[in-house]
Each structure stands twice: as C-alpha cells, then as structure tokens.
Simulated scan of single mutants.
Amino acid sequence: MTDETASAAHRQAVELSNGDGEVFGPLKGYHHETYAFSLPEGNPLGRRFQRGKLRAPRPGVFWYDRRCFASEDRLLTALKGRVSRIPDTVEVAENIFLQGFIEGAPPNAGALPGRPLTARHEHQLLQLFRELVAVKTSELDGVPRSCEPDGPGVDSEDSLGFLHRLISFTENRVYRDGLDVYGEIFERLGVRGSALEALKAPRRPFTERPFALVHGDLHRRNFIVDTTGDLWTIDWELAMIGDPLYELATHLHLMRYARRDAQRIGAMWAQAVEGVLPGSSRGWERDLPHLLTFKRTQSVFTDVMRTARMLSDGTDPHWRGLPAAAWKVRRALVAAQRPLELRGVPNLPQVMTVYTEWWRAQAG
C-alpha cells in the first residue's frame, strides 16, 4: 500500500506502530475499517498488550441494526472497571482511539454451529450478563448517543415500547428504505413488511423490565478466547440501553444452540441477572418466544438486503459469494416461515435465480 492509496485509518495505524511492515489489515469487519499492529515501547496501553488495534467507522455504511452509542471507543472507556475482559481503550488524539488487541480466537473455532461454550466460558458469560445489568444507565450519560427517542424521557421499563422501536427501525430504515431498489427481491421471495407490523402486538401481555446496558450482538465471532483461556467480549458498536431480555434473545438466536442448551442458558441467565437487577428477568419465559420470533423475522430482512448489496458492491458482481449468501437467506426464510406467513420456501437454486435476475435487470 502506497502513501497515495493508504486510507487515513491506515496512516494513523502506521504512526502508532513500529512501521508500515508491522501493520495488519484491514481486518474483516463491516462497520469499521480495522488495523492491528505491534505496539512500540512506551505505548499508552502499557505492557499488557503486545499489539494494538485502530478501528475507524466506515463512512456511509448502511446499518441493519439499531444502535444507541455514537462511539464504541467512548463506550468502552466508560465501561472500564465495570465490565471485565473488554478491550482497553485510550484516546491518543482527538477522536482517535487505540484499543488493545486480544490475542486468541473465537470459542470452538471450526466447530459445527450450535456447539455450546465450555463450562468455564459459560461461567464467564454469566459474569458478563451480571456486569451488564449492574451498570447504572446514568453512568453512561456522558457517552454520545445516536438513537432517538431513547433519551431520559423514555420509560425505563417499557419493554414493549423498546421492542416497537426495534421493529420500526427494521420496518422503516431497512425494509421500506430499500423497497425502491430491492422490492422485486422481497416480492419474489414472498417477504412483506406486514409481518413486522404484526409483531408489535404480542398475543399475550408483554412484561415490563428495568432497562439495562445491552451489548446487542453476542455471537461466537464477538467472543475471543485469549492465550490463557479466558473469554473476552469485543465489537460493542450495536450496544443499547433497553430490555435486558433482548440480550438473551439475541444471544440464543445468533448462537443457534440446541433446544436443551438454549433452555439451560436461559435459566442460568435469569438467575444471574435477577440477583443483580431485581425484575430484569420478570416474565422472561413468556416473552422470550416473541423476541426470538422478532429476531428470526429481522434476520430475513437484513439477510435479503445484505446479499443484494454484496452483489451490487463494486463494478463486478460477487458471484463467487452468491451460493453461500443465498443459502443463508434460505435458512432465514425457513426459520421465519410462520411469522412471514410463507406458503412455501424457495429452494437454493430458486433463491440464486431471484438474485441473478435482479442483478441483470439492475445492470441492464
């Protein structure tokens, strides 16, 4: 990479490192342009980390999920000493932050999806759940917010209102904003926004729970097992203040546990958070299925658009990645077939054909 083609984030990483040859990246990631690099002597993070990480938000990135904090780095700074095993962060210049790079790999790397965490890592996950609900939301007032209307005037126990805001984001900022370009794909796959509207009215009364800090994206790739075997949590850009049960629902949805493991994790979560924030698990067994239905439905809308944007990103379509992306779309359709009221789900070749014909129509 030459000086002329290097991005501002890369140049900043070089300045913070021992030299251009020690900078690695950009690392895989959607929301941020990320570089890892060896840390020189006397770096602001001290001797605890051998490498540092610089994450610069990608300009103009499309957000598929609602988020509430404008700066992941400033949130991590506020959580220092409150939440264990998260990246250390230090501001090295105005709005430029250096994070400690966690050496390691995701848990059960290479294993089949759905494999549970080890007993040690489950214990540390429960510790994370407890620490999240222990954070007083007022302690985060100084962290810039990017979501509305989640300010002080929002009911701090209105779990149904919180769910409505999540649904409205998917309905308006993902589905409706994409209809002009991706409407044909949605129509041919049988996906309609009315399924989201129906989720706003649960069949049973929704329980109020005190709001807490929510990571919002606790899946396998956002956990790192370090060289000593401890579980760290990274990538906090989707963090919010809201219903703590949403944390459990998101985790179960993304981890794809077997039913017995999901039930066991749910019971342990309820016991863990209730002991710290009374009422935070209130009604969880009754409300969890509805939140899981939302997550399955949301995945369809986001996966449908992610695949289309993957094809249209750049001058040439990314045909090589289409089979895997189409398989993911089909899997999401199968999981959400009931709330989407689909009479049938297209097979993999049919899903691929929908995207191929859509791209050709766009290109023509």
Score class of each variant (00 low, 15 high):
L189P: 06
L189M: 02
L189E: 00
G190E: 02
G190Q: 00
G190I: 02
V191P: 04
V191S: 04
V191Q: 04
V191C: 02
R192A: 07
R192W: 06
R192K: 11
S194T: 15
S194A: 14
A195Q: 03
L196I: 10
L196P: 02
E197S: 14
E197I: 05
A198R: 14
L199G: 03
L199A: 09
L199I: 09
A201Q: 04
A201T: 15
P202F: 01
R203E: 12
R203S: 11
R203Q: 12
R204C: 02
R204V: 04
R204G: 00
R204A: 07
P205K: 04
P205N: 11
P205E: 12
F206S: 01
T207V: 13
T207C: 10
T207M: 04
T207R: 15
E208M: 13
E208P: 05
R209C: 08
R209H: 04
R209G: 02
P210R: 03
P210L: 00
F211Y: 01
F211C: 02
F211W: 01
A212G: 10
A212L: 13
A212S: 15
L213T: 06
V214I: 14
H215V: 06
G216V: 08
G216D: 13
G216F: 09
G216T: 14
D217E: 09
L218K: 02
H219K: 03
H219Q: 13
H219G: 12
R220D: 08
R220Y: 15
R220F: 14
R221N: 11
R221G: 12
R221Q: 10
R221M: 10
N222S: 04
N222A: 00
F223I: 09
F223D: 07
I224P: 12
I224Y: 01
V225R: 04
V225Y: 03
D226C: 14
T227A: 15
T228K: 08
T228I: 10
T228V: 15
D230H: 15
L231H: 00
L231G: 10
L231Y: 02
L231N: 00
T233F: 13
T233K: 14
T233S: 13
D235V: 05
D235L: 09
D235H: 05
W236V: 06
W236Y: 14
W236T: 07
E237S: 11
L238T: 13
L238E: 09
A239S: 12
A239T: 07
A239I: 07
M240N: 15
I241T: 10
I241R: 09
I241Q: 08
I241G: 06
G242S: 01
G242P: 03
D243F: 00
D243A: 01
P244E: 07
P244W: 10
Y246E: 15
Y246A: 13
Y246I: 10
Y246M: 14
Y246T: 14
E247P: 08
L248S: 00
A249R: 03
A249T: 03
A249W: 02
T250G: 08
T250P: 01
T250K: 13
H251C: 15
H251G: 04
L252I: 11
L252G: 04
L252S: 02
